[in-house]
Design a binder for these strands. Structure first.
Length: 499
RNA sequence: GAGCCCGUAGCUCAGCCGGUAGAGCAACUGACUUUUAAUCAGUAGGUCUCGGGUUCGAAUCCCGACGGGCUCACCA
């Protein structure tokens, strides 16, 4: 932390708390002890004594621990919050031992304490522990944000996420739901005999997607390495090796591109590969995975995002890209050759901020541009968009009925690409030709064209079984399922410029 | 990378047609002691993000920098 921020707390508020810390030590209290034998979480007590009537005592002695969030009546009442919820603490001089009374005077809102005492419900109906003994578990030196409005400053919420999590229940709920989503995906995949694997983050050749990588350097090997932009090529190598017929990885990818409410430089994807099936199997699997995640966090397939009602009930429609573009524009790209398609797409791009396609752009780039301009953001309800152009799909098999197309689909929800899948290209000769085409595009100025990965082609020469592959963007899925407007809300520590 | 908006006490915010800064919460002192954002009285707390400029005088107007948000571009 920069020095000026360290000094932020070095004011009178902080020195008052340092004095209290010294006073605690003078009492023989360790303000940062090693452990506390807790018997119950707040929510457990709430459940166990749900029927306890107001004014009743239980005689049950418990030990609870948590953070002081409120002090009322000069310390008579404390609100203690733990990860499960809240429990009230009653500190009366008749019940509290002398050491506890001395500690009580030195406590602040925000301090972590342990309490031992008997459970009762107050006449006003609040479940309460009558403190007999108090333990300091961590003395705090800085005050918490204001109790009513909490921490609202979005920059502080992201920079000091710990404060955001203490203060804002919605932030806790969102990140807990993120964990539920990931757990739901695993709970679908593991019983289907998908093997969870980990593949390298450091790549000598950044492949598997079209994106700008981060570059780093390995000192001992004295080579540049790239943070991976996708795990795809390594996962398929595992299929070649026969490690399993079904593999998946849920992990980070890194792309050195702009930040936005929907883009973080590091993001999490699920990628999976299944032998002996094609992309149609991936459509069903995508539906099953995403609906399982929705059920896990929302308990329903009818959800709301940003005020839009979304119905995730399967099966989702399957529409081809060319058909959707024709519906939106009246132009049938399937009947156009590359130059005509380019002209048509550039006409659509006129008066938009998109720059026109150059002569090197192929037919597929033209169709893709038209789709992006006129169709993409209108795909609010779930839809599998099929018929992706082959020349923008260098890792996918050609469509068995139309060589201009690939057996690839992307699933769109709320105008976002949520899933991307193909019948994986397994022919090493075709793959080598696709890499060569990418290299030509790169030479022509396409910075994101994929580099030639000779070892990957060699792997294919040893035989990759026919397979389907599927990728799902976890961050965006969590955004949808938690109604979060920014990707930063679903990432605990989003990338920010250091202050 | 471009455009628009924002930055005032620990936190949430007023003040912004120029006259040198205020509230609530948090803190401190005391009162009260079965409260629920407890209440009451008092006290303290500020390089108004930073640096220039205009002006007799700048939180306020102008320029620049830094940080953030949104939109666009790249992209998932």
């Amino acid at each position: 932390m920069p020095e000026d921020q360290m000094n932020d707390g070095d004011d009178s508020l902080r020195s008052i708390r340092l004095n209290k810390l010294g006073a605690l030590e003078a009492l023989g209290v360790d303000p940062y002890p090693y452990e506390f034998a807790r018997s119950d979480e707040a929510a457990d007590l709430g459940r166990r004594h749900a029927a306890l009537p107001a004014g009743a005592e239980t005689g049950e002695r418990v030990r609870v621990a948590g953070r002081i969030r409120a002090i009322r009546n000069s310390g008579l009442f404390l609100d203690l919050h733990d990860a499960s919820g809240k429990i009230q603490i009653f500190c009366h001089r008749d019940g509290l031992d002398p050491q506890g009374l001395a500690i009580l005077k030195l406590l602040d809102i925000g301090d972590l304490i342990g309490v031992e005492g008997v459970v009762r419900r107050t006449p006003r109906g609040e479940l309460t522990v009558n403190a007999a003994r108090l333990a300091v578990l961590a003395k705090t030196l800085r005050p918490l944000p204001e109790k009513y409005h909490g921490l609202a400053d979005v920059e502080l919420r992201y920079r000091q996420r710990y404060l955001d999590l203490i203060m804002n229940p919605e932030s806790r709920a969102t990140l807990r739901r993120r964990s539920l989503v990931v757990a739901a995906l695993r709970s679908q995949l593991l019983p289907r005999c998908f093997l969870e694997v980990e593949t390298p983050m450091l790549h000598a050749i950044p492949g598997g997607a079209s994106a700008k990588p981060f570059i780093t350097h390995h000192n001992a090997l004295d080579i540049d390495l790239y943070l991976r932009i996708a795990p795809e090529l390594h996962l398929k190598r595992l299929l070649v090796g026969g490690l399993a017929d079904k593999v998946f990885e849920i992990n980070r990818c890194f792309r050195n591109e702009g930040l936005s409410p929907r883009h973080n430089p590091e993001f999490t994807s699920l990628e999976l590969y299944e032998a002996y099936v094609d992309y149609r199997a991936m459509m069903r699997l995508a539906e099953e995975l995403i609906t399982a995640a929705a059920q896990a966090v929302r308990g329903s397939l009818r959800i709301e995002y940003g005020g839009a009602a979304l119905d995730l009930s399967p099966p989702w429609p399957r529409r081809s890209m060319a058909e959707l573009v024709e519906e939106a524009t009246g132009i049938d790209f399937l009947k156009l050759d590359a130059p005509a398609a380019r002209d048509a797409a550039n006409a659509l791009a006129a008066n938009t901020s998109d720059r026109p396609l150059g002569d090197e752009a192929g037919w597929g780039h033209a169709l893709e541009l038209a789709f992006a301009l006129r169709v993409e953001d209108r795909l609010i309800q779930p839809v599998h968009v099929t018929g992706f152009p082959r020349d923008i799909s260098p890792l996918a098999k050609a469509d068995r009925n139309d060589p201009r197309l690939a057996e690839r689909f992307e699933t769109y929800i709320y105008g976002w690409e949520l899933a991307n899948a193909f019948s994986e290209l397994t022919d090493p000769r075709d793959q080598a030709a696709r890499f060569e085409a990418q290299m030509r595009a790169r030479a022509a100025g396409d910075e994101e064209a994929q580099p030639f990965d000779e070892d990957y082609v060699a792997a294919l020469e040893y035989g990759l079984p026919p397979c389907g592959g599927l990728g799902i963007g976890i961050d965006r899925l969590v955004m949808l399922l938690t109604d979060s407007p920014s990707i930063r809300d679903v990432i605990a520590f989003p990338t920010l410029r250091p202050r």
